[in-house]
Write a protein that binds this DNA or RNA. Structure first.
Lengths: 256, 256
DNA sequence: CGCGATTACTGATCCAGATCAATATTTCGC
DNA sequence: GCGAAATATTGATCTGGATCAGTAATCGCG
């Protein structure tokens, strides 16, 4: 599942470096908005991590010193917050082309662990080198800032979702979000093969596993989706979207 | 309340520009880690917005085109998500020295409005100029990335708080967070003068106003804090902190 | 300084979703 | 291919916090 698409054949001169320009994901990733020759400079600081992670393996642990950021090349990972087990909380799911580790810049260590949801390959980019190169390549700096800004915006949307929306809308929002991200990556938008368990989804949405199960059943019985285990087909995306655009009743301005 | 601290006397050559180097907030703000002469270059792209905002006024509205970022110089603002009234949700409170607007880079417009909680002065920094200068001044680029990374980390912590922690811990976490930020700014750590209403707090924490009121009362009756309207005194910070460090009972690993 | 409008507190009820419990279904190790 | 563990679904209760309702303190403005 989610086995992508970015196994480029082109390699630059025999090292384990890849040409980012030839990568199928370059439109989603750091190279966006950078011209040919500069992409090669970027590629020179990117290294494929040799063995792909297997399901359940950690890319890094919470608390690990921050050295590099990673781009998912194939597969998917979850970010897990909560130093000691038990209070483990999933804070995000990441798909091919997405950059992780940026939240570690400020403190110098990773606040969350990254754990593979399936067989997953990543590109590793030393942060010191990336920062230096961003200074030299304006387009890279811009794209880096854009990606971080997008991450802030996304986290904020999640805050609003978790802080105020009922359970059904949370799940609908997740499904729509995954759907559009799948589509960007060339996967069918309405046929999702989820790589995460109900448990992960529940943790991410701040719900109990049972509630998530019930919601899948309810959305199915209402004809919005068809569910078979981790295979989800979106039958009525508009209805899902209407669910999310929560029509709150009264409009009461609260002064300053 | 919160009338800060950064009314510098030094002005550079008669314009409305300020010397960031002389600003009391420079240790919290963009100039951190930049040397003297470069700080002047930064100051040259910073403009004080002439009239301070009065309580309730907007610095920018949701949807406004993104042109500049802002640093709170004195006072405080709330970020408000939710295009049309009624579903208004507070997503953050910002104090002197804090930078807002970075969430607008990706989309090119502001996802949230910024509204003054009291009389508030800001510095305005054109983003195009900031981006260009960040390329020229490595320390500025680094600090900008650090600030954004910190914002991501903070939003993520809020996600975890809103997604899983009970009401009491949410309020405790907010009080402790405000306390430490007040302290960084030279205000007493255990005597908070809140500039936001109960309504704002409730919205931010994803709770009902009544619940917030009750929690203030409860925490007071338990001897952790003393409350008189918006004046909060932290009597037992350790106990508050113990509340937040939610001791979840069982530790059940969930595989991948 | 007095009266209406916010803003804050408190009590009574109700409900969405957690928790407890039991049963399928799938996956994986051997 | 079989049995055990992990994962998913469904049902029955229980509860934290929302909602409804009413009062009190404070603010703002004539």
């Amino acid at each position: 599942m989610l086995t992508a698409t970015c196994e480029t054949k082109t390699r630059s001169e025999g090292t384990h470096q890849v040409s980012c320009g030839a990568c199928a994901l370059h439109r989603l990733c750091l190279p966006l908005g950078i011209d040919k020759e500069d992409i090669d400079r970027l590629a020179s600081i990117v290294s494929r991590r040799r063995p792909p992670l297997r399901r359940g393996e950690y890319l890094f642990h919470a608390g690990d010193a921050f050295r590099a950021v990673y781009v998912i090349r194939a597969g998917s990972v979850k970010m897990v917050n909560g130093s000691r087990a038990g209070d483990e909380r999933v804070t995000g799911f990441y798909l091919p082309g997405e950059l992780i580790g940026l939240d570690a810049i400020a403190a110098g260590n990773h606040p969350c662990a990254a754990r593979a949801l399936e067989t997953t390959a990543v590109c590793e980019i030393g942060y010191a080198e990336l920062e230096a190169l961003a200074r030299a390549i304006p387009g890279l700096q811009r794209q880096l800032l854009r990606l971080m800004s997008g991450e802030i915006r996304h986290e904020r949307d999640m805050m609003v979702l978790l802080g105020g929306m009922p359970a059904g809308e949370r799940l609908a929002a997740l499904l729509l979000n995954l759907s559009s991200r799948f589509e960007q990556r060339g996967f069918p938008a309405r046929e999702l093969r989820l790589s995460m368990s109900r448990h992960d989804i529940a943790s991410y949405l701040g719900l109990a596993v049972e509630t998530v199960s019930r919601l899948f059943s309810r959305l199915q019985s209402e004809g919005l989706i068809s569910v078979r285990r981790r295979q989800v087909i979106i039958d009525d995306g508009d209805a899902l979207a209407r669910l999310v655009a929560a029509p709150l009743s009264v409009l009461n301005e609260n002064s300053p």
